[in-house]
Design a protein around this nucleic acid. Structure first.
Length: 498
RNA sequence: GGUCCAGUAACUCAGCGGUAGAGUAUCUGCCUUUUAAGCAGAGAGUCGUUGGUUCGAGUCCAACCUGGAUCACCA
């Protein structure tokens, strides 16, 4: 007994045979499109009046045949139009071809534009031809425009199927296509913004002999010719800084990082990061840059600076609020902690079931409390400043109190969107910090950083003072497309094998 | 990893102890201005998997698989 699906496919294959018998190539090498559909959708009356013949091509997404005439909906990437195919216009032979067409086929239709009796703007075909036969029926989608709103009577909504066979999702759910179009616009706008400010886009190794620049467990792979293990990068930071040592003043990289950790609504094992470094700038400069960038994205992509996300009105017009971590603990938890309050901080963690990794000192505890109990409550764009130095091994300490690092994270709608600091350029101090991380590793913290001697050597040659900024692009896209799952903004999210 | 929810026809779902259902899709017939086309008819499901309870299991129970939500860790 054949599966139902195979029976569907068998039927289509029988049609293929009929096409071959009729001497029709179901997969011809050339198409002859003269216009994109969107082009004929502009100036409809003029097209109709001119009687100009056009050839449109696309996927047949719906068929309404009735006797010796029929209608179909033809869709290309630019739009959708109805085609009208009548036997007395295309001829008996060509009409037989139309009868062998299924929804899902790619076809091209030659003809002129007109309005049907029902008033729908359509292509009146003088000839149709097949461009690519569909063998596997698409899930049926019925839709109708009521009061200007598109009503769908059924849709591909199975989340797993949507992610595993993303092409079907994109094909059948046009609004999901729009998410990725917007993603592309965001990335393109970021590039323009940085290019205009004279940043140089660079590419640094994804395969690295040592990993660094963040706290995370890496993926390990093996290079056969060198017979060494290599790590997939967890961040681009240490290589970009080497470039500043090498004389570049403004660099950025937009690319994938890889972290061997859990997956959930906000984490995919590979994700897209923007990192940039600007010599002679500082934290203030990074704030200005971040504000301007987000403002620019809001206007270029959203065309407005205030928009709804998860029921909140998010206002991306600058300047953003600023608050130190200490101030936020006071504001949200009525908790006053400073560098000497280890016991108090520890007690608070225990009281609120916050897991404390071995080797944690006061700074780590303050950071844990903030992350656990404050971060997700911050809705409007806020620069959270003054992170404990203990959790910022690559950032400069604040001159007035070296317990704190000159660092900020930008939090929007409870998400950490950007992370920036005045980059540590003192090679001896950097060594001490990395060795402290190594000590944490020895205590069992698998995410603590490793000591990168080559990086330290580069710093010894001298690196100017500078500001650095990292922005998680997937989360940014989530925010600007109003999605709260990272899988919705990644075309092919990581899934368990079937 | 913990907890909760879900998996029935190609799609969306109903059925929750007694012979597997609907709409759409598909196939056949009719139909020259339809548009969720229409009318008439037909075919189509190991009811996620494996066990168990029962005279009898999509239906109850258990385990497992897959996914989603949520909590814990991280961007």
């Amino acid at each position: 007994m054949q599966s139902r699906e195979n029976q569907f496919i068998q039927l289509r294959k029988q049609k293929l045979e009929k096409l071959y018998t009729a001497g029709i190539d179901p997969y011809p090498i050339k198409s002859h499109r003269t216009h994109k559909i969107t082009e004929v959708l502009k100036g409809k009356e003029e097209w109709v009046a001119s009687g100009q013949e056009v050839i449109l091509a696309g996927r047949l997404v719906a068929m309404r045949r009735q006797g010796k005439l029929g209608f179909g909906d033809l869709e290309d990437a630019s739009g959708k139009i109805q085609i009208y195919v009548a036997q007395n216009l295309v001829g008996e032979e060509n009409y037989e071809l139309f009868k062998l067409c299924d929804s899902g086929d790619f076809i091209q239709a030659k003809g002129t534009l007109f309005f049907t009796q029902a008033g729908e703007y359509s292509l009146k075909a003088s000839q149709i031809s097949l461009l690519a036969k569909n063998l596997r029926p698409l899930p049926p989608i019925k839709e109708k425009v009521i009061d200007g709103k598109l009503v769908r009577y059924s849709a591909l909504s199975d989340v797993e199927l949507r992610y595993r066979k993303r092409y079907l999702d994109l094909l059948l759910n046009p609004s999901h296509r729009d998410i990725f179009i917007r993603r592309a616009k965001i990335i393109s706008a970021i590039r323009s913004f940085l290019d205009e400010r004279e940043f140089i886009e660079v590419e640094t190794p994804i395969l690295q002999p040592l990993y660094g620049g963040a706290n995370a467990r890496p993926f390990v792979t093996h290079h056969n010719a060198l017979n060494i293990d290599l790590y997939l990068r967890i961040a681009t930071e240490l290589y970009l800084k080497r470039l500043i040592v090498g004389g570049f003043e403004k660099v950025y990289e937009l690319g994938k990082d890889f972290r061997n950790e859990g997956m959930d609504r906000t984490h995919n094992p590979e994700f897209t990061m923007l990192e940039l470094y600007e010599a002679y700038s500082d934290l203030e400069g990074m704030m200005e840059l971040t504000e301007s960038l987000l403002q620019c994205l809001a206007m270029d992509v959203l065309h407005q600076s205030i928009y709804r996300f998860k029921g909140y009105d998010i206002d991306l017009s600058k300047p953003f609020q600023r608050a130190s971590m200490q101030e936020l603990l006071k504001e949200y938890l009525n908790l006053e902690l400073s560098e000497d309050d280890y016991e108090q901080a520890l007690a608070f963690c225990k009281q609120h079931d916050i897991e404390v990794p071995p080797g944690s000192k006061t700074g780590k505890l303050i950071y844990l409390i903030y992350e656990d109990m404050v971060e997700d409550k911050i809705i409007q764009p806020t620069f959270v400043t003054d992170f404990p130095k203990e959790v910022s091994p690559l950032a400069k300490a604040k001159p007035d109190n070296p317990f704190w690092a000159d660092r900020f994270e930008l939090v929007v709608a409870g998400y950490e969107l950007a992370n920036a600091f005045s980059e540590l350029n003192d090679p001896l101090e950097q060594r001490v910090r990395l060795e402290a991380q190594a000590a944490l590793r020895a205590l069992g913290d698998e995410e603590a950083a490793v000591v990168d001697e080559d990086f330290l050597e580069a710093l010894e040659y001298g690196m100017p003072p500078m500001g650095g900024l990292g922005i998680g692009i997937d989360r940014l896209v989530m925010l600007l497309t109003e999605n709260d799952s990272i899988k919705e903004v990644i075309l092919f999210p990581q899934m368990k094998p079937e």
